[in-house]
Design a protein around this nucleic acid. Sequence first.
DNA 1: AACCATTGTCATAATTTTGTAACGCAAATG
DNA 2: CATTTGCGTTACAAAATTATGACAATGGTT
Lengths: 251, 251
Amino acid sequence: MKDPLILVIEDEESIRGMLRMALEIAGFECIEADNIQSGHTMIANKRPDLVLLDWMLPGGNGIELLRRLKREDSTKELPVIMLTAKTTEDNMVQGLEVGADDYVTKPFAPRELIARIKALLRRSPGVLQDERMQVGKLILDGESKRIFLGQEILEMGPTEFNLLHFFISHPERAFTRGQLLDRVWGANVYVEERTVDVHIRRLRMALQSASLDYSSIIETVRGTGYRFSSRSVVPAAERFEASGMHSAHWQ
Amino acid sequence: MKDPLILVIEDEESIRGMLRMALEIAGFECIEADNIQSGHTMIANKRPDLVLLDWMLPGGNGIELLRRLKREDSTKELPVIMLTAKTTEDNMVQGLEVGADDYVTKPFAPRELIARIKALLRRSPGVLQDERMQVGKLILDGESKRIFLGQEILEMGPTEFNLLHFFISHPERAFTRGQLLDRVWGANVYVEERTVDVHIRRLRMALQSASLDYSSIIETVRGTGYRFSSRSVVPAAERFEASGMHSAHWQ
DNA sequence: AACCATTGTCATAATTTTGTAACGCAAATG
DNA sequence: CATTTGCGTTACAAAATTATGACAATGGTT
């Protein structure tokens, strides 16, 4: 999985440096801004997973930015940790009230900061996930992270699960290996394109149970890549029912 | 078991937001009202398990609503926690006199609030604690805080008990280590994610008696976390019986 | 104070999953 | 047909992820 991206908005060069080092050691990607202005821009462009925001900043108070972030829907969910020099209760309270997800007072122990960052980050991924989709007798349950074929549970690795998840939500459409790598493996991951073939095979293998064989639901599009198509396996009757909901439905 | 439903009656948007986040992380359902009026309506319609009531509210004092709630039989039992900005003894006393079950002064630590909510919910029957749940031959008795496997009593530490309690109330669903930390250990607890592994192991160890071995009822979901699934241990016949009660029932 | 149970962390072992390379067949090309 | 190109398969070693055992800190008891 890709390293989480942390944006540090802090004007003091030395503190930024320390933070960058601590963050990178802990395995985070790190980008920096030294003022509200560029900080806001970076949030819009780089889409960080979390923001460390200094309380006092030139060109506008830090809490001002925080307020703006929590007001906009697009950034409302973005976790923000306030960095404050003062220990006064006032600041903390005000920060939390405006919507900071946590705050840390300088000087802070890097270890504690990292722990808090992790604590916040672990809440993020579970938001956009748990759906349930079905095509024919093939069911993908995002909650339990399982695949059912009829009554049986299919065993497969995480990558195959993600691949199937992507396919089942983008049916009847051909993707190149490159597209699959970008959208299933994630951008900026350098992996041989032919590796996709191997995972396609593993997925096909997994798509057969004792009684049913759905392996051909993933079709090869020669010269292009692969396509998930229910036409090849799902009987006509079921197909009609499913197609009405764009080949998948949730319950 | 369905998550307890908490109603937050509070006019300040930012505080509501913070509360919602804290509550949801702690595993509660959350609905909100920004004034006495709609708050009262929601209590009647949604039947929350507990109410967080701000002291000062537009359209009628918060304590006014509290008084009304405690007067009516239908809502007399409904636990209410007052939120007050002032630390003055007066308010607190007045609130408790009118029948608030607890009160918390702002600024409050989310952790403390959650703890108090749980403490209150424990008292109301059938909501949080005193339940008895069963999956196969595994029985969790909330009152005695004991676990039975068939005839035997299983020994385990508090954390393992809580973990099992959480799992048994949320079966057939995969959780990340982070989610487990948030919901079993509590929000705002900074613990290494790997620690979950260790407790899972301890729980699995505990889940075997002399005659029965239920350790595999906790499945590891590679790349994600863990899942409590009765499929692996409970015979089909029993499974049917249990599933009808959503895999758990209480007395 | 000594003891015991419980916890959170590490270090290390055990397993699974992943990415590649290699080989052979099948489908286009001409 | 002979070639070339693309894909399916298999086998492996590297990389990730989990399981496990040990240990020190903590907190409560006796």
